[in-house]
Write a protein that binds this DNA or RNA. Structure first.
Lengths: 201, 201
DNA sequence: ATAGTTATAGACGACCGGTCTAATCAGTGT
DNA sequence: ACACTGATTAGACCGGTCGTCTATAACTAT
C-alpha cells in the first residue's frame, strides 16, 4: 500500500480507458466485447479484472474519465479571454458540431451514444451520466446568467431551465445527425439556440 | 404464392414483432438475444428465420412496424376535432411525455432508445429510423404551417426547421429523462416548446 | 387420399461473452 | 543471492450468441 493513489492514472489503465472510449463511442456498450478493447490496447485479457471490477465498473470509470476531460474543455471555452459570454456559448456549440461530424457522423460524445442505451442497463453508469450532464448544464446555466448580467444575451425564463433545454436540443440534434448521416440537424439546432438566446441569426 | 400479402401481419410474425418492440424498448438492441424475444412470444427459435432473414432484418421490420403505428397515432392527434392546431401540437407532446414516463422512465419510444445505438450499427435500421423520423417532422411541419395559417401560433423561421428543432428537443429531453430518472426535463422542454411556438406559458 | 407447399420444432455448431483461479513476474529488504 | 510479497498475466471455464440444418407437423389443392 505504498502507492495509495500515487500514479492513479496508471499507464495501462489509462490506455484501456482511452481505447474503450474510442471504440464504445463508435459501437456502443453492449455491442463491444472486452476482447476488442483489450487487444486494441495491447493488454492481455486477464489483466482487465486487475484494473476494473467488471464491465459495468469499467463503463462507469469510462464515463467519469470522459466527463472530467469534457468539463475541463468546457470550462476553458467558457472562460476564453476577450469574448462575450454569448460568443463563448456559441463557440461551445460550434465546437460540439465539429466534434460530432467526424467519420460518417459517428461523433465521439458518450452522452449521445451511450445515454439511452446504458441508462436502463446499469445504475452505476446511469449515475455517472447524471453527474456529468448535471455538470454541463450547471456550467451552461452560470454562463447564461453571466451573459445576461453583462448584457450580451437575454432569455425568457430561468437560466437553468434554458440551459437544460439547450442541452436537450443539442443532444437530440446529435442523435438526428447519426440517423440522417448529415450535419444539417446541427444547423437547425443552432438557429433555435440563437433564437432562445435572443441573438441575431 | 396464393397469399402474396394476404394476411401480411401473420399472428406469429406480429407477435414476435410486438414482443421484440417491448423488450428492445427496455433493453436496447445488442443487449437482447433472439432467445429472449422468442421464448417471451412462445415461438420456437427455428421459426424465426422463416419470418425474418436475420436479426438485422428483424430490427428493420420492428422499426417499420413501430413507426407505422406511431404515425397513425400522430395523424389522429393532429386531426382531433374541435381544437386549434396549437392545442393539437401541445397534446402531441403531452402524449409523448405520458408515454415516456412509465416504469422507471424506461419509455417506449424506439427512436429515443435505439437511435444512437443502432444508427452506427446497421444501415437498414438506420434508414428505417430516418424514414420514420422524417415522417414525424414532416407532419409536425405541416401542422405548424396550418397553425400559422389559422393564427393559433406563430414561429420565427421556416416551419420545417422549427419542426425539426422541436423534435430534436424532445428526443434529447427523453434521453435526459432516462438519465435522471425524473420527468422534470419534459417540463423544461415544454416551456421551450411554448416559447418557440410563441404560446402563453 | 395424396402431393406439395408452408410452418413449426428444437438440436447443433462455431464462436464469443464476462469471470475467475493459478501461475508468473518484478521489486524489495535482508 | 535469496526468499518473500504483491502486481500482473495467462488461459481455462461455462454460459449464451446467432444462425443453420434436418425432421416433423399442418394445410391446400387437385
Amino acid at each position: 500500500m505504498n502507492t495509495v493513489n500515487a500514479i492513479e492514472t496508471n499507464d495501462v489503465r489509462g490506455n484501456i480507458l482511452a481505447n474503450g472510449q474510442r471504440i464504445m463511442a463508435a459501437k456502443g456498450f453492449s455491442a463491444v466485447g472486452l476482447n476488442e478493447i483489450l487487444t486494441a490496447s495491447g493488454v492481455p485479457k486477464g489483466s482487465f479484472y486487475h484494473y476494473f471490477g467488471s464491465k459495468d465498473a469499467f463503463g462507469e470509470a469510462l464515463l467519469e474519465a470522459y466527463f472530467e476531460d469534457y468539463l475541463a474543455e468546457l470550462d476553458a471555452i467558457l472562460s476564453a479571454p476577450g469574448l462575450t459570454m454569448a460568443q463563448r456559448l456559441i463557440n461551445y456549440w460550434q465546437n460540439w458540431q465539429d466534434s460530432q461530424s467526424f467519420c460518417d457522423c459517428q461523433g465521439k460524445c458518450l452522452a449521445v451514444k451511450l445515454g439511452a442505451e446504458v441508462a436502463d442497463l446499469s445504475e452505476a453508469m446511469r449515475l455517472a451520466l447524471k453527474r456529468g450532464t448535471a455538470g454541463i448544464t450547471g456550467r451552461l446555466a452560470h454562463a447564461i446568467e453571466a451573459g445576461m448580467a453583462e448584457g450580451s444575451l437575454s432569455v425568457a425564463g430561468s437560466p437553468h431551465d434554458i440551459a437544460e433545454s439547450l442541452y436537450q436540443l443539442w443532444l437530440g440534434a446529435s442523435v438526428m445527425v447519426k440517423i440522417s448521416r448529415n450535419t444539417q440537424p446541427f444547423g437547425t439546432a443552432m438557429l433555435a439556440t440563437r433564437q432562445i438566446l435572443q441573438l441575431s441569426p
